[in-house]
Design a protein around this nucleic acid. Sequence first.
DNA 1: ACGAAGCCCTGCAAGC
DNA 2: TGCTTGCAGGGCTTCG
Length: 286
Amino acid sequence: MSGRFRICHSAESRTLPELPEVETTRRGIAPHLQGQHIAELRVRQWRLRWPIPRELPSLLAGQPLGSLARRGKYLLFGFPSGTAILHLGMSGSLRLLSESTPPGKHDHVDFILGNATALRYTDPRRFGALLWTADDPEQHPLLRDLGPEPLGESFDGDYLFRRSRNRRVSSKAFIMDSKVVVGVGNIYANEALFMAGLRPGRAAGRLSRAECVRLAEQIKAVLNKAILAGGTTLRDFVGGDGKPGYFSQELSVYGRGGEPCPRCATALKSIRQGQRATVYCPRCQR
DNA sequence: ACGAAGCCCTGCAAGC
DNA sequence: TGCTTGCAGGGCTTCG
């Protein structure tokens, strides 16, 4: 690619931005933000999960972009005077496109860069958020109590074992708890439990140390695999290079209730656990 | 402290 | 065909 990003505008086939998608987004757009500044912040819809701070456009205008970091599913845009915290919710996406591209119905925010391009935030369901902190973002209330990064060194089977003692919540709810570990959403929780051979409804506190080791390993494996594939979705998730992600075709259980287990061909069971779809193999997962 | 349920929002699918 | 209803989901918030 010749230094110029692909312009993407189709709005098809988006799925939930889980950690791999957020990381893919970060990697896709970061190179295009290098050395740029915010010429203007155009907000068309202020009401997201929380309202966008009214003062954000004036805070960002003219500011040079520093680092683009990720904590869990939060993207952190570093500026000299603070940090913009962006969450994609469950239907959000970021794309790079020409400033003059007409906004669609759900294109809520444009970060207009100095080079006449726009980083456009789209979010049909508006479960996402765009906030600002002038202080250490790690101390922000939304980030303060987050558990470790699943791909970091501090997250392993021993950690899961320790944290799960005396916990009666289901294993699935446990690994989806962002205070335990960040970035494990419904899709990857289902997948990791399948790969680890663990039944989602098992109380977390009843997992053995060896099972916790397996679970931690599979969480890492599933997330890494998804990141390599470019995120689970999506033809146009990132304007970064517009490459489609193929991982959704490789999901073993998620969305496959009733289909044969890829390992033993038993029909996969689909249940609801705490308002969330859970799919597992009644034979392979104990 | 813990666990479960409620809530925010819109697009889509199913049912009448 | 066109309406209504239900469901999906992350994750904070509230309730028990």
